[in-house]
Amino acid sequence: MKLLTTFFSVGLLAVALSAPVQAQSTQPGGHGSMHGSGTMPSGGTPMGTGMDPAMMQKMMKDMMPAPGDSPATVAFKQAHVKMMHDMGVTYSGNADIDFVRGMIPHHQAAIDAAKIILKYGKDPENQKLATAIIAAQEREIASMQAWLAKNAK
């Protein structure tokens, strides 16, 4: 239930935030403007996102559980939303630290997806691959956590 609440909260937040992004990016001097001209690069997409607000809203809608989704699909969607949430790290300005902090949840999402295959998948090759992914990603996460403990002070 807690994950489902987080799911809907993330979706509502994305929808709520898309309108201000669009408004800011079209106003002269707004965050997405080019030299205060009020225009946006890429034919109307907010600078740096590569997506317009409608595309972002569709992406968020597609990540929400829908009637008729299989249990595996719901699990994949939940894992994806969790990853996107957890990758929202506070940037330090140090590229190495920021990279590692963002990669840990990314690698955890690979573990989560592999566990979904182990639970719902039927193909033996995918089961074997999922098991290997879990082992490899757990090692890499441990390595990144050790690096952070040593370097992110």
Rank of each mutant, 00 (worst) to 15 (best):
T6Q: 13
F76D: 00
H80K: 09
K61T: 15
V10N: 08
D112V: 03
S9E: 15
T5H: 09
V15G: 14
K122E: 09
K150T: 15
D62Q: 11
A113M: 10
Q137M: 02
L12H: 15
A146W: 01
S33V: 08
G102R: 07
A114E: 00
R139K: 15
D52P: 03
D112N: 03
G43H: 07
I116R: 01
D69P: 11
N94V: 13
P71V: 05
G43F: 08
Y120P: 00
P53T: 07
M40T: 15
Q108W: 03
M47W: 14
G43N: 10
F7T: 12
F7P: 00
T5C: 05
P46L: 08
R101D: 08
P46S: 11
Q22G: 04
K150I: 08
L3S: 12
L118P: 07
Q22C: 00
L129M: 15
P28I: 10
S143P: 00
S143Y: 07
L17K: 12
Q27F: 12
Q27H: 13
I116W: 00
T73N: 06
V21N: 06
G30L: 04
V74R: 10
N94A: 14
H31R: 14
G36K: 04
G93V: 09
A23F: 14
Q24N: 12
I97L: 12
D123W: 01
F7Q: 11
K115S: 05
A19W: 12
V100W: 01
V21M: 15
S33E: 10
M56H: 10
A72S: 11
H85K: 12
M60P: 03
H31L: 15
V81L: 10
S70R: 02
F99G: 07
L148H: 10
N126I: 00
V74Q: 10
P46D: 06
E140F: 02
A14R: 12
A79P: 01
F99V: 07
A109D: 02
V15F: 15
L118G: 09
D112G: 07
A19I: 13
Q78S: 03
L13M: 14
K82D: 04
Y120D: 00
A16V: 04
A149S: 14
F7S: 10
V15H: 15
K153M: 07
Q137H: 03
Q108L: 09
V100Q: 03
V10L: 14
P28E: 13
D98A: 14
F76A: 01
G50L: 08
S70I: 04
M1A: 15
H106T: 01
M63V: 04
S37R: 10
D86K: 04
M87L: 02
M51N: 03
A135K: 02
P53E: 04
G102T: 06
Y120G: 02
G29P: 05
G29D: 08
A79W: 00
L13R: 13
D112E: 05
M47R: 14
G11E: 09
G32K: 07
D52H: 06
G11T: 05
S18N: 05
G43S: 06
A16R: 06
M103V: 06
M51E: 02
A72E: 08
A95G: 09
S37F: 06
Q108V: 05
G44Q: 07
G38T: 08
A142G: 05
D96M: 11
T45L: 02
A149M: 08
N94P: 11
L129P: 02
G93H: 05
L4I: 09
T90H: 13
M60T: 07
T49W: 08
P105H: 05
A152M: 06
T90I: 11
S9W: 12
Q137I: 01
